[in-house]
Simulated assay, not measured.
Amino acid sequence: MTEFTVRHNPERERFEVLVAGNAIGKAAYKKYDGGGAPQRIFYHTVINEEYGGQGLAGKLATFALDDTVAAGLGIVPVCPYIKKFLTKHPEYAGSKVAITPAHLQFLEDALAARAAKA
Protein backbone atom coordinates (compact mmCIF):
# COMPACT_ATOMS: atom_id res chain seq x y z
CA MET A 1 0.00 0.00 0.00
CA THR A 2 1.12 3.53 -0.81
CA GLU A 3 2.30 5.73 2.08
CA PHE A 4 -0.10 8.65 2.41
CA THR A 5 -1.08 11.56 4.61
CA VAL A 6 -4.55 13.03 5.10
CA ARG A 7 -4.91 16.69 6.02
CA HIS A 8 -7.48 19.45 6.28
CA ASN A 9 -6.89 22.37 3.91
CA PRO A 10 -9.39 24.94 5.21
CA GLU A 11 -8.24 27.67 2.82
CA ARG A 12 -9.44 25.51 -0.08
CA GLU A 13 -12.40 24.05 1.88
CA ARG A 14 -11.33 20.48 1.42
CA PHE A 15 -9.66 17.50 3.00
CA GLU A 16 -6.80 16.04 0.99
CA VAL A 17 -4.94 12.76 0.61
CA LEU A 18 -1.26 13.36 -0.12
CA VAL A 19 1.32 10.98 -1.55
CA ALA A 20 4.90 12.28 -1.61
CA GLY A 21 3.51 15.77 -0.90
CA ASN A 22 1.14 15.74 -3.89
CA ALA A 23 -2.64 15.84 -3.48
CA ILE A 24 -4.06 12.69 -5.06
CA GLY A 25 -7.54 12.92 -3.59
CA LYS A 26 -9.96 15.31 -1.93
CA ALA A 27 -13.24 15.63 -0.12
CA ALA A 28 -14.52 19.12 -0.96
CA TYR A 29 -17.04 21.00 1.15
CA LYS A 30 -18.61 24.41 1.58
CA LYS A 31 -19.16 25.98 4.99
CA TYR A 32 -22.83 26.69 5.67
CA ASP A 33 -24.48 28.40 8.60
CA GLY A 34 -27.91 29.21 7.22
CA GLY A 35 -29.50 26.34 9.11
CA GLY A 36 -29.02 27.85 12.56
CA ALA A 37 -26.09 25.56 13.35
CA PRO A 38 -22.80 25.56 11.43
CA GLN A 39 -22.44 22.76 8.90
CA ARG A 40 -20.19 21.43 6.16
CA ILE A 41 -21.86 20.56 2.89
CA PHE A 42 -19.73 17.77 1.37
CA TYR A 43 -20.25 17.88 -2.38
CA HIS A 44 -17.37 16.05 -4.09
CA THR A 45 -15.00 13.25 -3.11
CA VAL A 46 -12.44 11.81 -5.50
CA ILE A 47 -9.23 9.77 -5.47
CA ASN A 48 -7.00 9.77 -8.55
CA GLU A 49 -7.66 6.63 -10.56
CA GLU A 50 -4.14 5.23 -10.25
CA TYR A 51 -4.55 5.13 -6.44
CA GLY A 52 -7.93 3.38 -6.49
CA GLY A 53 -8.58 0.15 -4.64
CA GLN A 54 -6.37 1.01 -1.66
CA GLY A 55 -9.11 2.18 0.68
CA LEU A 56 -7.95 5.79 0.51
CA ALA A 57 -11.43 7.23 -0.08
CA GLY A 58 -12.66 5.57 3.11
CA LYS A 59 -9.69 6.86 5.09
CA LEU A 60 -10.27 10.34 3.66
CA ALA A 61 -13.98 10.23 4.54
CA THR A 62 -13.24 9.03 8.08
CA PHE A 63 -10.71 11.81 8.65
CA ALA A 64 -13.02 14.47 7.18
CA LEU A 65 -16.08 13.36 9.11
CA ASP A 66 -14.18 12.91 12.38
CA ASP A 67 -12.79 16.44 12.01
CA THR A 68 -16.25 17.80 11.21
CA VAL A 69 -17.82 16.15 14.26
CA ALA A 70 -14.93 17.25 16.52
CA ALA A 71 -15.46 20.84 15.33
CA GLY A 72 -19.14 20.59 16.32
CA LEU A 73 -20.36 20.95 12.74
CA GLY A 74 -23.20 19.15 11.03
CA ILE A 75 -22.52 16.86 8.06
CA VAL A 76 -24.60 17.58 4.94
CA PRO A 77 -23.95 14.67 2.54
CA VAL A 78 -24.62 15.97 -0.99
CA CYS A 79 -21.66 13.97 -2.35
CA PRO A 80 -22.77 10.45 -3.35
CA TYR A 81 -19.65 8.87 -1.80
CA ILE A 82 -20.13 10.59 1.58
CA LYS A 83 -23.85 9.79 1.49
CA LYS A 84 -23.13 6.09 0.94
CA PHE A 85 -20.30 6.11 3.51
CA LEU A 86 -22.72 7.43 6.14
CA THR A 87 -25.14 4.55 5.53
CA LYS A 88 -22.34 2.13 6.47
CA HIS A 89 -21.09 4.14 9.46
CA PRO A 90 -23.93 4.81 11.91
CA GLU A 91 -21.52 6.43 14.38
CA TYR A 92 -21.98 9.66 12.41
CA ALA A 93 -25.79 9.57 12.45
CA GLY A 94 -26.05 12.16 15.23
CA SER A 95 -24.16 14.70 13.14
CA LYS A 96 -25.85 14.03 9.81
CA VAL A 97 -28.13 16.83 8.58
CA ALA A 98 -30.90 16.20 6.06
CA ILE A 99 -30.32 17.94 2.74
CA THR A 100 -32.75 20.80 2.13
CA PRO A 101 -33.46 22.96 -0.92
CA ALA A 102 -31.67 25.80 0.92
CA HIS A 103 -28.48 23.69 1.10
CA LEU A 104 -28.65 22.92 -2.60
CA GLN A 105 -29.29 26.55 -3.57
CA PHE A 106 -26.45 27.76 -1.37
CA LEU A 107 -24.10 25.19 -2.89
CA GLU A 108 -25.14 26.03 -6.45
CA ASP A 109 -24.64 29.76 -5.83
CA ALA A 110 -21.26 29.24 -4.11
CA LEU A 111 -19.91 27.03 -6.88
CA ALA A 112 -21.17 29.41 -9.58
CA ALA A 113 -19.49 32.36 -7.84
CA ARG A 114 -16.22 30.41 -7.62
CA ALA A 115 -16.40 29.48 -11.32
CA ALA A 116 -17.04 33.12 -12.25
CA LYS A 117 -13.81 34.15 -10.46
CA ALA A 118 -11.73 31.57 -12.34
Rank of each mutant, 00 (worst) to 15 (best):
I47A: 03
V17Y: 00
A28D: 09
E13T: 05
P38H: 07
R40H: 13
I41E: 05
R40D: 00
L18D: 05
L18Y: 04
G25M: 08
G34D: 06
V46Q: 11
R14A: 11
G34I: 10
G21E: 04
E11C: 05
E13C: 13
E16T: 05
K30A: 11
R12P: 01
Q39D: 07
I41C: 12
V46L: 11
P10W: 09
I47V: 14
A37I: 12
N22G: 05
G25E: 05
A27L: 08
A20K: 13
R40Q: 04
E11G: 15
G35Q: 08
Y32Q: 02
V19T: 02
G35K: 08
A23L: 01
Q39C: 11
P38K: 13
H44V: 10
G21F: 01
R12Q: 15
Y43K: 06
N22D: 13
T45L: 03
G25W: 05
G36F: 11
I24Q: 02
G36E: 11
A27V: 01
K26T: 08
R40V: 00
H44A: 08
E13H: 14
R14V: 10
E49T: 14
I41S: 07
G34W: 04
E49W: 08
E11K: 14
G34T: 05
I41F: 13
P38F: 04
K31A: 14
P10M: 10
A37S: 14
A20H: 11
G21K: 06
Y32L: 06
I41Q: 06
V46T: 02
I24T: 01
E16V: 07
